[in-house]
Design a protein around this nucleic acid. Structure first.
Length: 613
RNA sequence: GCCGGCGUAGCACAGUGGUAGUGCAGUCGAUUCGUAAUCGACAGGUCGUCGGUUCAAUCCCGACCGCCGGCUCCA
């Protein structure tokens, strides 16, 4: 009854298909990627050619192909407007129509420098200086436009079948804040107009699902903005979803042997000096506050507290492993320009846990986490994932022996779990190797959610020990892990993944009971109170309005089921059910419908035991 | 933080150097109407904040706060 309708599935399948076509490089043949890249790179050159033609005093920066299109950076006396963009795009199309040959020319360093000095292109000259002595320098020429470039390109501007300029923004020269700020023009290009149209449709779909928009429309959350940028207010409906999610999280963690803890939001600054966070990350921490002459600090992480709990509760190897879990809210200073809805905030809740174990338990513990990740994240329909193993970075702490042992344990855990993975060499955290997991959402976008990190550093800093079976003092290994990463961000991802239409078990309001006329209210009240007794999140709409009006409102609120009662239902002790997807089931017997919903309204892992009835 | 854009009623948006409108939502009234909008009336805004220019600022200028698109960053 709550299944997704065929039409919706078809739309989703279509979306995933078109997303894969241009967003997932792995699904494309290497050859196709290269040819699309060359096409887009040539489109970038054509963009620069058009800009130079229309605005001769503009100076060019760099203009590469990207995952989704291309861009080119310019320095110009004023910002480009949307009208400029339109002009430029038209000029590009006219350049494409003239089918200018794109010609590769090797040049000497001297020639290159002379060329770009004459053209007054200081950024290009800077790039030439960065090219190693022995390397060959090439330029690509199309019409009157010449660009320093190593290629490859398509052979003529006529070979750019579909191009579109998308937006402008700013970017630093070479991405360095100390460098001048340039204007970046973004665009995209494809082998056909049809593919371009697919891309644009996908972009619209992304906008339609924007969690900030849906979050406001559905009354899920808001951010404090003027009262505190990057801080989240969970409105009642959003809070209900969070509660369901957290309840499920706790149940699954209990089953996997975790012990739930609570820790404070602030502590004396010394704690973060001891942990080393103050040294490493103080730029990302809120300023300390002083009380009675002592500096206190808002927590940017939960781990030091969990370490203190470990010290309280563990002495012997018999106590290990110990798994401490907490939905702990942390505060980190993020630069104002980086804040973004729920995705990037200054106060967020980590679905955190720290596992302290003996070295020989490491691999098994990781396996347990991997299984929990799939169970937990999979519950939301995220099944397609990519797993990365990150190894020792250049700047790191710990012995070679430890790094080898830990990296080997991660590898073994992955292999024993039958999980294929990619290695990210040197991408580990300074304190240990890690496994990162990205999941793909309903429209094919990849989100980094889970992370599992081994830590040699903190146990050392806090001098954590236990006694082994020979009575010797040993240092435990610590694992940091989060499945969602941040509850706030995960919620944002869920909103976009489901496009606001949460599955029945997660929906803040699961069923709305609506009456045809006032005389049906007593019966509807009875149905409503039965539902509430069964733990269903049901509400009644008994207003004196037409049924079409009530249905429309419920539909826009994305309530999974509408139970309609009128004369026929009252007479026969039945209900008529209409789903959000538009399916209708008239005159269902009340009792069996209630029994049915009382099971479906829970996450499968949490369906209460029936008491024999 | 930086570059650019933006900030008008709960939401979506108009608008003007002489203190503001539309739609939806809201409130009230009528309607009792079977699966995406019944009709009518009313009410609602120190036009983000502070300062400046001006006889007069929501409109022009500046600073600040916030939002949006990027850049940068992301333990």
């Amino acid at each position: 009854m709550c299944g997704t309708s065929g039409a919706v599935i078809q739309i989703l399948t279509e979306l995933v298909r078109m997303t894969e076509r241009y967003m997932d490089p792995k699904s494309m043949a290497e050859k196709d990627i290269q040819s699309l890249k060359a096409l887009r790179h040539s489109a970038a050159h054509t963009l620069a050619q058009a800009v130079k033609k229309l605005y001769p005093s503009a100076q060019v920066g760099i203009g590469p192909a990207t995952e989704e299109g291309f861009y080119y950076d310019f320095r110009y006396e004023r910002p480009f407007t949307p009208e400029d963009l339109e002009r430029i795009e038209n000029e590009m199309k006219s350049l494409i129509r003239s089918s200018l040959p794109i010609v590769r020319k090797p040049v000497s360093r001297g020639e290159a420098e002379k060329l770009f000095r004459e053209k007054n292109e200081p950024f290009k000259l800077e790039l030439i200086q960065g090219i190693p002595e022995e390397a060959e320098i090439t330029v690509y020429e199309q019409g009157e436009f010449v660009d320093l470039c190593r290629g490859p390109h398509v052979s003529s501007t006529g070979e750019i079948p579909a191009v579109r300029l998308l937006s402008t923004s700013s970017a630093y020269w070479k991405g360095m804040e100390s460098n001048p700020s340039l204007q970046r023009i973004y665009g995209t290009a494809f082998h056909s107009e049809a593919e371009l149209a697919d891309y644009l449709r996908h972009q619209e779909e992304v906008q339609r699902r924007d969690h900030r928009k849906l979050g406001r429309e559905l009354g899920l959350f808001r951010t404090l903005d003027e009262k505190g940028a990057g801080l989240v207010l969970w409105l009642p409906k959003g809070s209900q979803i969070r509660r369901t999610l957290e309840d499920l999280w706790k149940v699954l963690h209990d089953r996997h042997g975790y012990r739930y803890v609570y820790t404070p939001h602030i502590a004396r600054l010394d704690l973060w000096m001891q942990s080393g966070h103050w040294d490493y990350y103080q730029d990302s921490m809120f300023r300390p506050m002083e009380t009675e002459g002592t500096a206190y600090e808002l927590k940017p992480m939960n781990c030091p507290f969990h370490i203190l709990i470990f010290r309280e509760s563990v002495q012997s190897y018999r106590d290990l492993p110990i798994r401490l879990s907490e939905l702990g809210t942390v505060y980190r200073y993020e630069r104002s320009g980086t804040l973004h809805g729920l995705m990037r905030v200054r106060g967020f809740t980590q679905d955190d846990a720290h596992i302290f174990c003996k070295p020989e338990d490491l691999s098994g513990e990781i396996r347990n986490v991997l299984a929990l990740v799939d169970q937990m994240v999979g519950r939301f329909g995220f099944t397609d994932r990519t797993v990365y193993l990150s190894t020792r970075p250049e700047k790191s702490v710990g012995t070679d022996e430890n790094w080898e042992m830990a990296t080997g344990a991660l590898r073994m855990a992955l292999e024993e779990s039958g999980i294929s993975y990619e290695v990210d060499p040197g991408e580990g955290v300074f304190y240990g190797p890690k496994i990162d997991i990205k999941f793909h959402d309903a429209i094919g976008r990849a989100w980094q959610l889970s992370t599992i990190q081994v830590d040699f550093n903190l146990p050392e800093k806090f001098d954590l020990t236990y006694r082994n079976d020979s009575g010797e003092s040993r240092r435990p290994i610590m694992i940091h892990r989060a499945l969602f990463g941040s509850v706030e961000r995960f919620f944002g991802i869920l909103i976009e993944h489901y496009a606001g239409a949460f599955p029945l078990w997660l929906a803040p309001e699961q069923v709305r009971i609506m009456t045809i006329a006032d005389r049906h209210i007593p019966y509807a009240q009875k149905v409503l109170s039965r539902m509430k007794d069964l733990g269903v999140r049901a509400e009644g709409d008994f207003r004196n309005e037409k049924i079409g009006f009530k249905v429309r409102e419920a539909q826009m609120e994305k309530i999974p089921e509408m139970w309609v009662v009128g004369d026929r239902e009252v007479e026969e002790n039945r209900v008529s059910v209409r789903t959000r997807e538009g399916e209708k089931k008239d005159l269902c017997p009340l009792e069996s419908s209630l029994q049915d919903i009382s099971v479906r309204c829970w996450p499968p892992e949490m369906v209460p035991r029936s008491n024999g009835s």
